[in-house]
Structure formats: structure tokens, C-alpha cells
Design a protein around this nucleic acid. Structure first.
Lengths: 207, 207, 207, 207
DNA sequence: TCGTAAACGAGACGGTACGTCCTGTCTTAAC
DNA sequence: GTTAAGACAGGACGTACCGTCTCGTTTACGA
């Protein structure tokens, strides 16, 4: 992208006013809306979350919400992106097992210890069915995590800890899939679970 | 009120009329409702599916729906249970790898080749967040699949194909988790994918 | 009217449901809406009368109002027609002056002693500017009054009380115009005023 | 704050800026607002006239309107007063019938040939129901017309053309009432009508 | 020739109401 | 006593304006 930033539809985020004169948009209102939306999304779920109630809880007029986000979906996606970002990176620790464990515990902790858990729980259907939420989420959060895990596998192969033909193309599924499976379908999500997933994935089932 | 047989909630299924005199319930209406509900759930998603539209498409009054299901959730769960049942069992084939592959391809085919796919996609949030849908689903479908896979692992160990300490407690997550991960977050769901999941899970990543 | 009653738009009144099956429209709701609308129209005026408040005061959903009247204007016009009807007729009393006085006091009393006063005050602009209200009002109420006064003039001429060329074409304007003038632009509306209007109109100003 | 001359409400008109330093009010903006307001009042009526649209059409910010007029009512009343003023005076012509005719044709022409017609049509309800518009209108326009007609009657009596007890207290109602009656309730407003009103009022109906 | 001060166009603010739609319940006539 | 039809009270939708409040800019006056 080399254009000089003048294109009106703010492709990625929703933060900018459409520029020029007039009273600037209130940052206070913006944050109040995001907070109220997160709370109500968690309390009521996506379907039962009412923008009318978000506005009331944020102490804001409905128009102030619609000025920034075109729909409930867009607001929810913004929320999701903000919450997911901090729990993706896996640092190069020198210890391959430790890094694989981090690949499991990162999403697990995000999901059990932060608001990302209830929020993504509330939005699973939308991510899976509604491209207007799903596509941006896949393009950013999911791809970032996949890339991070691919690097873990590469480093493990380079260290000689993992076999040379370890399948990086399904590693994310094998390591993170179990976490989301239990998020949806129940089962404890603790460190022991994470370790058993990593052990099984490393050693395999075969005798 | 002195009768004791008229209590409305039919504990298990929703199929029986409360018996007694009067015009019997129409089987035609029942099927028409389920079909219309399935179609609209797939077309619009759970949140945007309107009982008003279900009634209209089924050529039925709204009261006829409420007489049989207490809520939109109950109707959706009924739909889900009917669609999930046929894709769980894994036959004893004598070949452990083949059985593990079936444990992956069973849910994968259900999800890609039948209406179970779009329906569960539409209901993921409800399953994850709403116990009134999630609990029955977990208690039946998920537990049945978990038990089926546990038997596969047991048979594999008995045959000597799998190591004695293969962790059956996370095997379902390792084999089926990847399928749901891709269902939600994108990625092809084909036989090659299933084989790579099974291979990785059997051999492990370690050198 | 000889048509077979199947035409859907109820040309005159707003009372009939569009017929056939289903729950019939509630007469209680209908009356409650009319009462609440009359009260609020008088209290607040036409412009500041809110259908939301009419609904609330009547204990009715907004849709129940919109099912019967297409707009605030239609509801107001219905109100007006009901209130105007009883104050038009002038009985043949045998006394011409008495009948002319009745032609003045009839609208004067309607306007000062009944709800017709505040209601028409609130609707003057609509009657004068909006044919959808004005035309029906003119065709019924105004024409009826004009015909009634024409008969009074005729009887007066027949009795020899009025000159043979008394101009019936402007008699309504001369007798009723003053009442509406004061309704709009202020001035007392009492029996003395009515008598002075009648005296002036009978004797004329000329020496 | 210790000054006592800065109090904002300019008692009579709306034209003066509150004086002192600063940029003077723009006469261009003032006229543009009045023009846009007149057009929209005529096009849409008082209730549907939006200050937001007035501002847009005048190419002016909303605050610029509110700086000059406290409300939509005040703006409308200003409009009305400006338009009514030129059609009130009745010159002493020496001919009583001619002057009485002028008393009828003055408001008739204002109403049929100038913007005063559509404007007052749009404001009748407000004049009749809302003292904030009605009182100033009565105090200026109506009283001025009443005084003008009283002088016509006086001159007519002095000339011996009218009877000594001709009732000046209802003359305005008798002469102008018919014009407003037809403005509201329909009927042609032409010279023939004016002459018939004057003839009837002068000669009376009595034989 | 500069502040100082107010008005300017623009547009966001917290609200209220709009007219539509949907929910879950209720009421009818027909079968 | 179930059916299709449809009215009911309630309440959220997304839009449109209200009257107020910043903004950054423009225009005049007095120091």
C-alpha cells in the first residue's frame, strides 16, 4: 500500500472520525462502549446482546455507537481482535518442549483467565458461519498463531529435538484444536491437560 | 387441578402429544416444522432464525410450534441431536490405523457432507455458552464419541499396535479437535488432512 | 353501497379488521386508544402528540395503533369526525332570528364546551394544508353545516322574515366565520357575541 | 461576572447581536435562514419542518439559528410577522363601500397572492393553541387589523354612510372572518366573493 | 498590528421518538 | 382439543432530529 491514506472507508479499525471539521469523536465514549459491549456480550451472549443496552450502560446515545461501528457484528469483531492479540506469541526459549507447551497454554490461559474466553465462546457461531466476522478473525488471529507455531516446529527441527518431517501443517490443529474442543464441548482446561496434549503429540500413540 | 398425567414437559423427546382425547397431533406439521427450522437455521444462523418465519415456511401457526418445543433453543437442540447420531460409531475393523482414521473422518464427513455441518456451525456459541443446549449435547453426542474412541485406543493397545500408556483421555481431543478447529477457523477438511492428523498423532513429532 | 364488502382498504372508517380467521380486534383497545389520543392531543397539541405516549397511556402496543390507523393524521381525523357530528343540525323553530342564532351558537358551543374545541384548534393547520385531513372534513362536516344554514335562509325567506335576495352563498361565512375567527385569533365567545353577530348580519351596517 | 447589560434575551426582535466585541452577526446568514425556513415551512408544514434541514438549506450551522431564535416557534412567528405587516392598512378613500371592500380584499390578497397564505395556513394550529406564537400574533397583526377596521367604521358613520350604532366590535369578524373561513374550509377567494360579503354585511339579510 | 472576543460551518454529543419487526401468549372459527 | 390465522402487550431495531457542545477558522474592534 502506497496511497496517501486519504481513502475514506477505514478498512481495518473503526477508530478514526471521517476527518475534517466538527467536534472530534470522544475517546471516553469509545472506551465506555467497548467496555459495556464486552460485559454484555459475556453476560448475555451475542444473540441476546442489545445495542440499546450497550448504549444505556455506556451512558451513550445509540447514534454514537452506529457512528463508529456499522453493526453489532462489527463491534463484536473489534472486541475480539483487541482481546486476542496479547496471547499469541511464543518466545524462543531454547527448550522445544517448553515452547510446545506454551503453544497450548497460551490459548488455554487466554480462554480460562481472560475475557477472551467468554467473548470467543459467544462468538464461535459467528466466526464459523458469518464471513464478516470470521474472515477478519482468521486473517489476523488464526494466521498469526499458525505462523507462531510453525516457527516453534522449525526451531525444534533445527535443534534436532523434532523429526525432520514433523508436519507443521497440522501442528496447530493438534496442539490448539484440543483446547478449543474442550472449550466448546467441556472438560477441564488445566496445566495437566496441556502437558498430556504435548506429551501425546510429541511421542505419538504408536508402540 | 387434581390430575397427574397432564404435566406438560415431556421429559425426553418432544414427539408425544400429551395424549388423551381430541384431535391427534399432525405428524405432517411436525416434520414440516423440523425441515423449515433446519433450512432457516442453515440459511440465517441461530440468532437470525425467526420462529415466525419457521411457522410461515412450514405452513403452520406459531402456537403449533410452541405446543411441541418450549423455545427456539429446544427446537435447535432437537435438530442437532437427530443429525449428530448417525456419525459416531467406529466399527472394529481389525486395523488400528483404519479405526483411528475413521475416528477423524466420521465427524469430518458429518460436518462437510451433511446438514450437521451448517447446523452445528450455527449452534457452536449456544453449545459453548448456553447449558440448556450444551449440556444435553455433551451428555449424548460428545460422550458417545469419547467412549467410541476410548474403545479404539483399547483395541489398539490390545493388538499391540499402540503403546500401553497411550493417553485415551486426550485421544478424542487430539483426533477430533483438529476437525472442529478447521470447521471454526478455516482450512480444508479432506482425506489428506485426516491422514496427516492420524499419522502425526500416531508417530508424534519427536525425533 | 352495493359492493360485496371484500375490498381490503376500508374506505371510510377504520374500525373493521380485514376479516377472516384469527383473533378479532379488541374493542377495548380501540376505545382506549381513541381516549388516550384525544387527551394527549388536547394536552400537547398535534405536533407534540406522540404515538408512543398514546400507546403507553392506552396500555397498548404501538403495533395495535398502526394496525388500525396508518398515521397520526388518520387517527386525528377519525377523532375530529366523531366529535364534530353532533353540533351541526339547526331545528325548524318557526322563529328565524332564533334559528340564525342557533347557526352561530352551535359551532360556538361545540368549540367552547366540548372537546371539539381543543381538537380542532390542534388540527386547523392540517385541515387547511393537508388534503388527506382537510378533504374528508370539508366533504362531511363543512358541507353539512353549509346545507343546514342554507335551509335556515330558505325558511326565513319563505316566512317573509328575510329579503328574497339574501345571499345564502355567503351566509355560512358571515355567521360561522366570526366564530372561527375568534377561535383562532382570540376574543370572547359568548352569547352576547353571538347575538351581536346575528343582529349585525340581519340588519347590516348601512344607515 | 459583574456586568448587568449582557443578559441574552433581546426583548423585542431577534436581530441584534448582544453587542460588544467579537465578530458581528452575518446578515447573509440571517436572510438565508429566513428564506430557507419560509420555503420549508410552506413545503412541509410546521410540524414536519426540521431546523436541521433549514440549517442545511441555508448553508449554516444549527448553532447559528439557535443564536438568533430560541425555538422553531420563535422563528416561525418572526416569519409570520414580517409577511403579515404589509397587508393591514386601509387608506381613507372617501368612499365607505370601497374601504369596506379593502378590509376584505387586503387579507384575501395577502392570503392568495403572497407567501403569507401558505405560511399562515401552516401556522394556524400554533396560533390557535400555542400562546408563544399566538399571543404576539394577536397583539400585533390582529389588533392592528381590528384598529384599522374600527377606523373605517368610524369614518363611515361620520360620513353618514353607516348607521350610528353599527357594531364596530364585530365588524372585523364579519368582514375578515369569511376570508379565513374559506382559507381553512375551502371555497373560492375572489373579488366576487369579497363583494358579496361586503354587500351582505352592509345591507343585512332582513327584509 | 496585534491580541481579544464572538460568530462562523461542521459535526459529535446524550436523548427521544419514529415506524417496523419479532416474541411468546391469547382468542377466534373451522375441523 | 388441535388446527391456521392473526391480534395482543412488550420491547429492540436502525434512522432521524432535537438542542447542546466542542472544534478550528474567520472577522471585526480596540489597545
Amino acid at each position: 500500500m502506497t496511497n496517501d491514506s486519504s481513502s475514506p472507508p477505514p478498512s481495518a479499525s473503526s477508530h478514526q472520525a471521517p476527518a475534517r471539521g466538527g467536534r472530534p469523536r470522544s475517546e471516553r465514549a469509545h472506551q465506555a462502549i467497548l467496555t459495556a459491549a464486552r460485559e454484555l456480550l459475556i453476560e448475555k451472549g451475542f444473540a441476546a446482546m442489545r445495542l440499546e443496552h450497550v448504549a444505556a450502560r455506556a451512558g451513550v446515545g445509540k447514534a454514537t455507537i452506529y457512528r463508529r461501528w456499522a453493526s453489532k457484528e462489527a463491534l463484536a469483531q473489534d472486541l475480539l481482535a483487541h482481546l486476542a492479540a496479547p496471547h499469541i506469541a511464543v518466545a524462543d526459549s531454547g527448550d522445544t518442549r517448553e515452547e510446545l507447551l506454551a503453544a497450548v497454554t497460551n490459548p488455554m490461559r487466554a480462554v480460562t483467565e481472560t475475557d477472551f474466553g467468554p467473548v470467543i465462546r459467544a462468538l464461535l457461531s459467528q466466526i464459523a458461519s458469518d464471513p464478516s466476522i470470521g474472515d477478519p478473525f482468521r486473517a489476523t488471529v488464526v494466521e498469526a498463531r499458525r505462523a507462531e507455531i510453525a516457527k516453534v516446529i522449525e526451531r525444534g527441527i533445527a535443534r534436532g529435538d523434532l523429526r525432520a518431517d514433523a508436519d507443521a501443517g497440522v501442528a496447530t490443529e493438534l496442539l490448539v484444536g484440543p483446547v478449543y474442543f474442550r472449550l466448546m464441548f467441556g472438560g477441564v482446561l488445566d496445566l495437566d491437560f496441556a502437558k498430556r496434549v504435548v506429551d501425546s503429540a510429541m511421542r505419538g500413540f504408536t508402540a
